[in-house]
Amino acid sequence: MSTSSGSPESWIASFCSLLGHEYFAEVSEDFIEDDFNLTGLQTQVPMYKEALEMILDVEPEEDDEDEEDEEEEEEDVSGDARDTRPHAGERRHHSRIASDLSVIESSAEMLYGLIHQRFICSRAGIQQMSEKYESNHFGVCPRTNCNQTRTLPVGLSDIPGEDTVKLFCPSCLDVYVPPNSRFQTVDGAFFGRTFGALFLLTFPEYDLTRSGNDTVTSLTRSQNSDSDMLNGVFKKNIAPGLGPNKIYEPKIYGFKVSEIARSGPRMQWLRNKPQDINVLDEARQFAEEHGETDDDDESMNLNGRAPARRRPAGNARLRQQQRQNQNGSPMAIEANGAESEL
């Protein structure tokens, strides 16, 4: 079926090598050939079948023999060229007219993008993206206090046509416009809303304090691993670009501009982080405030401070209460393997 013999490069490889497509991973044919992964896409893309065949470099068998006849047969089929019956494929193909080709080409790009959104959230895809991350394919955060942290391509919407690709910085938890205008035509939905955060959950050990100029390093958990972790992540990796000495302080001739001034600072909260990161352990705080003790006996610790827990204690009903009391406390969903994967 798949014949790439005619062209030196597959459609996927050439798509990914286009200028502006540097952020894309090469979706594996295995992933595309599994219909399950394409669920729901048929209705989102015009000329779906042709587009899919283009992506996979599949040509109907007869084409090899009848290539020269293609032009003459046009009239025969123009009527049902857009027929979507699955078995109509061969004939339709055969008689693609030029205008159809450009429709199919743009459909193929759209389809590839939508498959890509799903692929990079699969095991194989996210792995490939991690290699691109390590090789610095996604650039670094433009914010001065983020010290050139590597960013991740994300969409602000999962629906194509709404917005272009953005870069998510794990150091300041903010999103930026890519520096080069060639990315301003790349659809954000082709990366989607989930990938950025999922990447960090999948690879929690990447040391986010490292600059993009350095090679990627991994954090490891020490013996007393609970003291390294908070809310399911390494404490060190919680927005390392934010906090007291990472906030811009406006000054005039060396004097701080006061908050009371009309032009005084109003946005410092956006770049702030508690000095003592344990303040963010809402579950522990809730337990302390309400004298709640956990089933397991790790709630006391030698330095007089309850240990940081990786997930909130208590049952759903309690958490519900807690949320009401505290204006939004965690109601945690545990994903598979949360305990074992770190």
Binding site: F36, R118, S122, L198, P312, A332, A335, N336
Partner: peptide, 14 residues
């Protein structure tokens, strides 16, 4: 969502 996730290849796509 808390903590790390185990990707499920079968469901991640949909």
């Amino acid at each position: 969502i808390v903590g790390a996730v185990e990707l499920n290849v079968a469901t991640a796509g949909v």
